[in-house]
Amino acid sequence: MRNIRWSMVFYVFLGLVIFVGLAMLMGLVSKKDSQQLCKELKVVVEGKETFIDQQDISKMIDQKFGSVVGKELAGIKVQQIEEAIEMLPYVSNAEVHLDMDGTMQVTVQQREVVLRVINKAGREYYVDRLGKKVPVTLKYVPHVMVANGNISEGYKQPLEMVESKLVQDLVRIAGHVRGDNLWENQIVQIFVNEQRDIELIPRVGREVLVIGSADSLDYKLRRLEVYYKNILPKVGSEAYEKVNVKYGGQIICERRGNWFIDSLQMKMNMKN
């Protein structure tokens, strides 16, 4: 008995008491959590668009899973609710959290569309930043670029990927123009002509800006800037019907009212 270190025994005993106490406490908390009822449903919809709102999400949850308010938190199918919300074509991500106070919070991130396409058959759809097609709704019309004309690609089902290079080019142009101080204010529409060349319709001026495709897009837009800064002020906005930068190293300007064409050969000197 003399060799027993009573201090060590005391600390071991104290540790066991604390461990048992914590285990009992965690058990009580877990039991309380499993019996905790959902008192409130909060929905937060994030993103620039307003395709959907809190009421749409709440209604969908009620229809598919029944009213969650009044249910035990342990019985709420969190993962299935998240998956159901993410199946909505206007939603890019959804997260559901259950709080110990009985609140179920649903956070929804909307898709950001960059282009509205109207094909030659009159079928319309949006395209988001990831190149996925989003259906048009009468509830909300986002302020995005519109592309129409000789576009064949249509719309079959929500969130299918854009297939043709033409529509991929249209999305690329819309994304490039968006956020650019000059072109976002100047370009109001994209048109595909009978030769399947892409044309930009400006806000100021009557001339059509022909770029052909989105290949070498930066280079083509720089040449259009040269036209606006150095040529347009000299000839006026009524001089040309078309300004074509489809071909490298030149700006081809078709005069209005006749077939005379000015071909301005250019050497793009980046230093000047």
Rank of each mutant, 00 (worst) to 15 (best):
V108P: 08
Q109G: 09
V113M: 06
V114C: 11
L115G: 11
R116K: 15
I118K: 14
G122S: 06
G122D: 07
G122M: 11
G122Y: 08
E124A: 10
Y125L: 03
Y126S: 02
Y126E: 02
Y126T: 03
V127Y: 05
D128S: 05
R129K: 14
L130N: 10
L130C: 04
G131Q: 03
G131W: 04
G131M: 04
K133S: 00
K133I: 03
V134L: 00
V134K: 00
P135S: 00
P135R: 02
V136A: 03
T137H: 00
T137L: 03
L138K: 09
L138R: 05
H143G: 01
V144I: 11
V144E: 00
M145Y: 04
V146Y: 02
A147F: 01
N148G: 13
N150L: 03
I151C: 01
I151W: 01
I151M: 01
S152Y: 07
S152N: 09
S152T: 13
E153D: 00
E153P: 00
G154T: 07
G154Y: 06
K156P: 04
K156Y: 12
Q157K: 14
P158R: 12
L159Q: 03
E160H: 08
E160T: 11
E163D: 11
E163Q: 12
S164T: 15
K165A: 12
K165P: 00
Q168L: 14
D169G: 00
D169C: 02
D169R: 00
L170H: 10
L170C: 10
A174D: 13
G175E: 15
H176N: 11
H176K: 15
V177C: 11
N181M: 10
W183R: 10
E184R: 04
N185H: 10
Q186L: 08
Q186T: 11
I187V: 15
V188N: 11
Q189Y: 11
I190D: 01
I190M: 15
I190P: 05
I190Y: 08
I190S: 05
F191Y: 15
F191K: 12
N193Y: 05
Q195C: 05
R196C: 05
I198H: 07
I198E: 12
L200D: 02
I201E: 09
I201R: 05
P202A: 08
P202M: 09
R203K: 13
V204S: 06
V204C: 02
G205C: 08
R206C: 04
L209I: 14
L209S: 05
V210Y: 07
V210F: 07
V210T: 13
I211H: 04
I211R: 04
I211K: 02
S213V: 00
S213M: 01
S213A: 05
A214S: 15
D215M: 12
S216N: 15
Y219S: 14
K220L: 14
L221A: 11
L221N: 10
L221D: 06
R222M: 13
L224N: 08
L224A: 08
E225F: 05
Y227P: 10
Y227F: 14
Y228I: 11
N230D: 14
I231E: 04
P233V: 13
K234L: 14
V235I: 14
G236L: 01
S237F: 04
E238K: 08
E238A: 07
A239Q: 10
Y240G: 06
K242R: 14
V243T: 01
N244E: 10
V245Y: 06
V245H: 04
Y247T: 15
G248N: 12
G248H: 13
